[in-house]
Design a protein around this nucleic acid. Structure first.
Lengths: 266, 266
DNA sequence: AAGTGGTCTAGACCACGTG
DNA sequence: ACGTGGTCTAGACCACTTA
């Protein structure tokens, strides 16, 4: 209950800046350089995820243990863990502990798949690869992925189906630099984000999508089983890792006669 | 620092159930009937919004004052206020106080308008009413709005433009019962949710949207200045009040050649 | 019974905005 | 200088899970 001034708890080379002064040398508030302790704790813990010392599914130390390790109070650790839980990086289970989120958690599965049937329960789609090859990034791709122009990339084209009916064709672009040895992947799995995590330790933490309505191109029409010109929902997605760097670019052309894209605004 | 067991702080006819037992009669945990104190505080405060004793833009009492009023600690009030802030019901400003959110707050404006130009800054669209009349709900509308079949409703059709270019046609359906005296509204304003708030004390707190791609109907084509059959983005929205009851049904048909619908997945 | 996360409290100090 | 929200701490008790 006595707050004796917080002296330099996490001394490590944290990206941020020092905090409060002690009771004496409290002159420097840095005016702009101020980061709450719990955000510094958060960054320390995110680093453990980035570096892979904490991997998906793993039980992490208890709040008390982390508080001891980092030399802060349990309440501060709690606030850091709460923000990470809100970001879907951790899953907390009362009585059991706190776990690192995995891409196969059912909650996470649908975080990035928003297409649902008009009638019936949402389901995760099956996939079949149409084509997978190495090429160079277009200018637009290079900008979106924040890589140099004409950098080498992998391009995957696949057809996805729900309830055995084709629902979308998607083109996925991956910077080769982030996925060394991609050519050795024999079977491209349905859940790509699980592959990124297991094979390259890349966690997809967030994504932005832009939606448009377009007319179906002849090439896609064959795969989707509709006439060219049919209205399709076009979804452009940039997926980012824990540090906010773009990892994947994806263009999906979706049939929405029996499906819809669901959004909740709050 | 001594926690003496929390006895029945908010005695009011709160929807929930009693909480903990006192030090003696701690036999009843109700097994399922347990609501954290801060959620009860939240419900009390939301009630003030629903009843209108707190209105948009108003400065609400300080945390300390609320803690005294409700006979709980400041920390519990804080947690309740934090959840309400996360729900966009309140706006907190360090050094000034906590305010009731208003529909014209710029942050709130774009909470429910997700269309942005492909190039340039997002802007709020201008509107012109095409038609506004009284009719009865279709079966589908009655289901979505949770009203009786063939209930009287208002139906508004309007054209909205960005940068002086028509971008969408929307059809809005309102249950007459929730909007008494709607016929006296002379000029239907651009920001409808602000009107609902000021005129009927209805706060739109959340909405669900379903998106599809469709072909432009002949009727809409004229207004949007495109050929019939052109691909359009169809957005169906159910907007709900503070208590989660549906208030408004809206179908928008959007031109997305120079605009897109933006979603952030986290 | 032990351990974990979840809630609640009380009090200190800090940063921000206004007078 | 004052009041507000924001952060941090320390300790208590509750609810859930596992052993």
């Amino acid at each position: 209950m006595k707050d004796a001034g917080n002296v330099n708890r996490l001394g490590l080379p944290i990206g941020g800046l020092a905090k409060f002064g002690a009771d004496e040398a409290m002159a420097e508030t840095e005016t702009l350089g101020y980061r709450p302790l719990y955000t510094q704790v958060r960054d320390q813990l995110v680093r453990r995820l980035v570096e892979g010392s904490w991997s998906p599914g793993m039980l992490i130390p208890s709040e008390m243990e982390l508080a001891r390790q980092l030399n802060v109070s349990q309440g501060t650790v709690r606030k850091a863990l709460d923000t990470m839980t809100a970001e879907n990086l951790l899953v907390r289970r009362q009585g059991r502990g706190t776990f690192v989120a995995q891409p196969e958690d059912s909650r996470i599965l649908f975080q990035f798949f928003r297409l649902a049937p008009d009638a019936g329960e949402p389901a995760f789609p099956q996939s079949s690869v149409i084509r997978c090859h190495q090429t160079t990034a277009t200018d637009a791709e290079a900008v979106s992925l924040e890589i140099a122009a004409k950098s080498p990339v992998w391009r995957i084209e696949r057809l996805r189906s729900l309830q055995a009916k084709p629902v979308l064709v998607e083109t996925i672009t991956l910077p080769e630099a982030r996925f060394p040895g991609f050519e050795t992947v024999k079977d491209i799995p349905n859940n790509l984000y699980q592959l990124y995590s297991k094979r390259w330790g890349i966690t997809i933490a967030q994504a932005e999508e832009k939606l448009k309505a377009i007319a179906c191109a002849a090439k896609d029409a064959a795969h989707l089983g509709v006439r060219a010109g049919e209205p399709l929902l076009l979804i452009g997605r940039v997926a980012r890792d824990l540090e906010g760097r773009p990892v994947e670019l994806r263009w999906s052309r979706c049939l929405t006669s029996q499906f819809h894209y669901a959004v909740s605004l709050r």
